[in-house]
Write a protein that binds this DNA or RNA. Structure first.
Length: 439
RNA sequence: GCGGACGUAGCUCAGUUGGUAGAGCGUCGGGUUGUGGUCCCGAAUGUCGUGGGUUCAAUCCCCAUCGUUCGCCCCA
């Protein structure tokens, strides 16, 4: 029996070209997070299982988490998300940290479930959180960071929509406005979560089944669907519109507009599961018709740090997965050009390796990434190798070049060759590298 | 966990109403010794995902299994 060469189900190998794209995406994440003053942290990939049991969502922990018992009999989980971990870290140093904390991380996470488009078993997720700020400026900043990432990746605002809702407003609507009990609220929340997957008729029928006869007589289903379709806060019914959570949303949209975020809209159907969020929640949707789905999401969760027995810390954050970002970039043709990190490929002619290697090292010392062909193959093969590796330049080094101290540099894309000193060649390549990094 | 589709050379795929397989691309070599991407010539490669069953005979039929993929459930 042959060993399989496939990676583990739902996980990916990153060949150099894949890794290049991953580094590009992570680079954007880090750059934008740091532009806003966020600092990177990290933590172990293993956590005690209890860390996840404390939260709601039982199926998630019991069936969708990788768990095992270690040799000491401890129940261990491979982290399925970063939020409990970062809350643990903040709680551990609750008294000594300088608030507000602006923290980010790019952990790999595992979830045990059937892989499908946009959702694999192992993925990397940017986590951006701000700890210690009660006010809406925290929400506004977090959404700005998410927006800044997409902008930096080359997206225009027509390519995505930021949909914002409020847990507090939702609670008021379900509990006080529609007068639902806790079981009904839970069922309606689940229904709302998948309203874009079912037909209008199916939605009406299912919601109808959840309401009591009295509620039905009051037109609960129509009231609900009317609310869910409202994209403008001003069009909500008076009692809803004047609720403090609605006023808060209004203020948030104003802050976002002032910050240049034009494509944030109100959407009451944004639920974000039904777990630890306590206030504003948001999701960013890809507007590509072939990939119209949520790319990232987050919101305010003021209660998690307090679970560790310390005073609670108000928190706003979001998570952004590498798979959904990649789908977004692919769908909008925003993938970076394939370019090698190797600046120049040295083609050595004849048996002049000794002196050639010295010249090559000089180029490295002057700051270039230089790969040298040490196969001894014919020149055309050496060039073909460089081309296949997407290296932009080749330098030819033979006896003649070494004795004249003039080397031939060839642009492998245009096919143009020139002869220059080593220093001049290095500066040409650096100019190219600088220009292409500006793009 | 549930349902659909798929699994043939490195890649994309064709094919046989059951008699052990092909194309394009790619790879490798050549078209005379210091220069690629075009062109011409030539070559290699597959236990047709795996195991079992039916059959004189299976890559093609049946069952199971593994994997890929789309969707459901769920979504951190």
């Amino acid at each position: 029996m042959n060993l399989s060469t496939q990676p583990y189900k739902g996980a990916r190998d990153f060949y150099p070209e894949d890794k290049r794209l991953q580094k590009y995406m992570f680079g954007i994440w880090r750059k934008v997070a740091e532009q806003f003053g966020y600092e990177e942290y990290d933590a172990p990939i293993l956590e005690p299982l209890e860390l996840y049991l404390a939260k709601t969502g039982e199926e998630i922990v019991s069936e969708q988490t990788y768990t095992f018992t270690d040799r000491g009999g401890r129940q261990v989980a491979i982290r399925p998300e970063m939020t409990p971990t970062v809350s643990r870290m903040v709680a551990a140093k609750r008294q000594e940290l300088a608030y507000p904390l602006r923290w980010y991380s790019v952990p790999n996470l595992w979830r045990y479930e059937r892989p499908q488009r946009g959702r694999l078993r192992e993925h990397w997720q940017l986590n951006v959180d701000i700890f210690g700020v009660d006010g809406l400026l925290a929400e506004a900043e977090i959404i700005q960071v998410a927006n800044g990432i997409l902008k930096t990746a080359g997206a225009t605002q027509s390519m995505y929509t930021i949909r914002v809702n409020s847990r507090k407003l939702m609670d008021f609507i379900l509990k006080d406005y529609l007068e639902l009990d806790s079981v009904q609220r839970h069922m309606i929340a689940k229904l709302i979560d998948r309203m874009h997957k079912v037909s209008h008729e199916a939605f009406m029928a299912e919601s109808h089944a959840i309401f009591t006869p009295t509620q039905r007589e009051k037109g609960a289903s129509n009231k609900l669907i009317g609310l869910l379709k409202t994209k403008d806060l001003n069009h909500l019914p008076e009692v809803v519109r004047s609720h403090s959570a609605a006023m808060e949303l209004k203020e948030l949209f104003k802050l976002l507009k002032d910050a240049g975020v034009e494509n944030a809209i109100f959407d009451l159907s944004i639920m974000r599961g039904f777990d630890y969020y306590t206030g504003i929640v948001f999701e960013v949707y890809d507007e590509n018709p072939d990939n119209n789905r949520s790319m990232l999401g987050g919101g305010r969760y003021d209660g998690l740090v307090g679970l560790f027995g310390v005073d609670p810390v108000p928190t706003v954050g979001f998570g952004f997965g590498d798979v959904t970002l990649q789908n977004f970039l692919e769908g909008h043709k925003l993938l970076p050009p394939e370019r090698s990190d190797t600046d120049i490929y040295a083609v050595v002619i004849g048996q002049t390796y000794g002196p050639a290697l010295r010249a090559i090292q000089e180029m490295r010392d002057m700051g270039l990434n230089v790969a040298v062909d040490i196969t001894g193959r014919k020149i055309d093969k050496q060039i073909q190798t460089a081309v296949k590796k997407n290296i932009h330049y080749a330098i030819f080094i033979g006896e003649k070049e070494l004795s004249e101290e003039q080397f031939e540099i060839k642009n492998l894309v245009t096919g143009v060759s020139e002869r220059h000193s080593l220093a001049r060649i290095v500066s040409i390549v650096k100019d190219y590298r600088g220009a292409s990094e500006e793009e």
